[in-house]
Nucleic acid binder design. Structure first.
Lengths: 222, 222, 222, 222
DNA sequence: CCCTAAACGAGACGGTACGTCCAGTCTTCAC
DNA sequence: GTGAAGACTGGACGTACCGTCTCGTTTAGGG
C-alpha cells in the first residue's frame, strides 16, 4: 500500500534528490502499527493523535507532517489489512463465493477493522477527500475481487458473457454492494456472526439471484 | 418512540407520586429536535452537547440528567425518523420490495440519518448498552417490516409457507441483512445513488434468489 | 445569639399568631451546627450550601428562606463562638490582659474560627451589609471587653480617668485594634503560636505603651 | 519579585537548554496585570480564572500550566505591590515608624490589596503550601523592614543593642505582628481609616512600649 | 569534511469541549 | 403556608486534546 501523504511533494525525482534529512520510514511503520494497537484498545472516538505519537515514540509534529488528521491516519492504518483479501479458487463459483464471504467476515471481525470501518465511513459522509481516500485504499481493492470472480466463472462456463459493457459494470457494482453490504450489516449492525451456515444460505440466495438476473426481464416487454 | 432514559426509574408507579419537580416533557422535545438540526448542520463529530443545549434553550445539566452522552442522545433523536418507514401495498411482492428499497434509500439520504447512522453504529462496536439501544430503537423497527412483507406475500401465494420455524426466522434475518446491507452500502460506502434502475435490478436479484432458497438445496443429499 | 434573619418578619406578635406551619427551631440549630462542622472539615471555599443542607437533614430551600447566602450563614454560625469570651478578673491589669490574650488566641486557634474569620472579613471588603453584620455579631462583642477592662483598671487605680471623652473613645479603639490585630496577625498570618511567653512580652509592651500614652505628648508644644 | 512557579524546574542549567518551546514572559506579565485589574473590578470571590485568561489574551490552559489555582495566582499578582514598601529615613525612630505605618495603610487601602489579602490568608489556613508562598512572597518582605528599622535606630542610639540574639529575634517578630496586625485590623476589620492622628497615637504607644520592653522585667527575679 | 536544509523531539501556545459541581430559583406533593 | 424533594437555568471549574508554533538537535546527502 502506498498512500499519498500529506504535504508530500506529489512526485519526486526518480532519484530522490530532495535536500535535507529524509523522512524516517521506520517512523511510518511505527505510527501505523501504533494506530492499529490504539484502535483495538481504545476505539475510534477515544483514540487521540497524542496517544498514537507517544505509543510510536514519535513527536506529535511528525504525525501532522504526514497525515492531515485522525481520519486519514486511520484509513491508511486499516487499509493494509485489506491487502490480505484474496480470491480463493476452489473450482466452482458457489464454493469460491462462500469462501470469500467467510474471509471478508473474518476480516471484519478483527477488532481494529470493526472499530474503525464504520467510524471512518461516518466521517466520510461529510468529507469528499476522505471518501476518495477510502475508496482507493479499501473499497476498490475489494471491488476488483468481484470482477476477477466473475471473469473466472465465465471462463468456467458458470456465467454467460454479458454483451453490454455498461450493464456488466452496473451488475458488478450491484453484486459488490450486495455481498459487502450483507456481510458488513450482519457483522456490525445486526451484530451476529457470519458462520458457515449463514454463508451457505447467503451464497445460495445470491447464486440463484444471479441466474435470474441474466434472464430476460419478465417485467419488460419482449 | 419510547426511549429508556438515563437514570430514569424504569417503571414509575401508575400514579406518578415521585417527590420533587417533575421533568419537563417540552425540554425533551426541544432537545431531540435541536439534536437533529445540529446533526444536519455540523455532522456527528462536530456536534457538541453544549451546542445542542444552547439550541434547545436548555442547560447542559439537563441534557446529562437524561442522556449519558452524545451517542445515546443521537440514537434517540434519530430513531424517530425510522417511524415513518412503512410497508407499501402495491399488490405484488416485487413491486412492494422495490418501493420499500426506495423508501429506505430516501431515508438514508437525509443528512441527519446518513451522518449519524454509521457513527452511532461505530460507537456501538465498543459499547454493549449502546448496541442494545440501537437494536431496539432502530434495527428491530425495520426487521418487522421484513416479516410483514413475507406474511403478505404468503397470503398472496407468492411465497410458500416455511414449515420449520427456525429456518423461517433465520431466512428473515438473512433477507433483512441483504436488503438493509445493500442499500446502506450503496448509499454510504459506495456513495452512489439508489435510483429506480438500481432498485429494479436489485429487486430482480433478490426475488430470484428467494425462489431458489425455497427449493431443495442442490448441494445437500436427496 | 439571635441574628436578624433573612426575610423574617422583623417583629412577630407577642403571641406567635402567624398563619401556616411555624418554622422549626430545631432546624435552625441543626443548620448552624452543620455549618460549623462543615467549616472544620472543608474550609470556607469548599463549603457549599447543598452540603450544609444535607448534613442538617434539611432542604436547600429552607436554608435560603433564612439566610441570603453563604457569608451570612457562616457569620451567624461562628458568632456564637465569641459569646464565650469573658474578661477574667485576676486582680491586676497585666494579669487580666495576659489572660485575655491567651483566651482570644485559643479561640482563634479553633479550626472553625480560624478558617472562617478571615474569609468572612474578606467577603466583607466588598459588602457593606455583611460588614455591619460582622461588626454587630463579632467585633463589637470584643470591643466592650476593652471598655470593661479599662473601667476595672481605673477603679483599681491602675489607669487614670481620661478627661476628654473623645480621646477616651479613640484610645479604646486603638487599643482594641492593637490587641486583636496582634493576636490575629500572629495566629493567622505569621502562623506561629501565641504561647504564654509571647503573651507575656506582648503584655509588657502594651502596658508600657499605655503608660506613655497617658503622659503629655512630648512631640507637642510646651 | 521572584515567584516560584507551578511545576517549574526550580533551577535550570545556567544555559537554558530545556527542550521545547520556552514559556512566554510576556504572557506572565499580561496575566499578573490582568489579575490585578480583575481583582479591583470584581473582588476575590467573583474573580474567575476564565475571566483573567480572557483579559490577558491568553488561554486558560496557560494559566493552569503556571499556577495551581486562584489563590496562588493572586498571591503572585499582589506580592509585587509590596515591593514598593520601603523604610523612610526621617532622622528619628518615631518619625520613621509613623511614616511606615502610613505607607502600609495606604497600600492596604488600595482595592486590589484589601480585597485579596484577607481572602488569600483565609485560604491559607487550610493549605500549608499556600502559607509558605504567602510568607516568602509577602510577609518576609515586610519583616525585613522591621529589622532594618531597628538596626538604624540602634545606630542612632535610640535603641540599645540586645545581647541575646534569640530575644532579639523574638522581639522583632513581636513588633512586626503588632505593627502589621494593628494596621491590618484597623483597616480591614474595624474598617476605619488610618489617618495621621491614629498613626501618631499608635507610634507613641509603640515607642513607649518598646522602651519598657528593654527594661528589666519587673515580674521576673533580679 | 563540512554545509545545508529538512526532519526530529519536546513542549508551550490559543482554543474548544468536556463532564461535574454549585448557586439560586421554581414546581410539585405532603403535612 | 411550611417543608422536603428534586428539576431547572446558568456559569465556573479543572482536564484533555486539538492543531500550530517555536525552539534546539540530529541526520543525511552534495559540494
Amino acid at each position: 500500500m502506498v498512500a499519498v501523504m500529506h504535504s508530500h511533494p506529489q512526485h519526486r525525482d526518480v532519484q530522490n534528490t530532495r535536500p535535507g534529512r529524509p523522512r524516517s520510514a521506520a517512523a511510518d511503520r511505527a505510527i501505523l502499527a501504533a494506530t492499529r494497537t490504539a484502535l483495538v484498545e481504545l476505539g475510534w472516538s477515544k483514540l487521540t493523535m497524542s496517544d498514537v505519537a507517544t505509543r510510536a515514540g514519535v513527536a506529535k509534529t511528525t504525525l501532522y507532517r504526514r497525515w492531515a488528521g485522525k481520519s486519514e491516519l486511520v484509513v491508511d492504518a486499516v487499509a493494509v489489512l485489506f491487502d490480505e483479501l484474496e480470491l480463493p479458487d476452489l473450482g466452482s463459483l458457489p464454493a469460491d463465493l462462500e469462501a470469500m464471504v467467510l474471509r471478508l467476515a473474518a476480516l471484519l471481525d478483527r477488532p481494529e477493522t470493526r472499530t474503525s470501518m464504520m467510524a471512518v465511513v461516518a466521517e466520510a459522509t461529510r468529507d469528499e477527500a476522505l471518501r476518495r481516500r477510502i475508496r482507493s485504499a479499501i473499497v476498490d481493492r475489494q471491488k476488483v475481487l468481484v470482477l476477477e470472480g466473475r471473469a473466472r466463472a465465465q471462463e468456467r462456463g458458470e456465467l454467460p458473457y454479458e454483451k453490454d459493457p455498461e450493464t456488466a459494470a452496473h451488475d458488478a457494482d450491484l453484486i459488490f454492494d450486495v455481498i459487502a453490504g450483507a456481510v458488513v450489516h450482519r457483522t456490525l449492525v445486526s451484530a451476529e456472526p457470519v458462520d458457515p451456515a449463514w454463508a451457505h444460505r447467503f451464497t445460495r440466495l445470491l447464486i440463484g439471484g444471479l441466474a435470474s438476473l441474466t434472464q430476460r426481464d419478465p417485467h419488460q416487454a419482449p
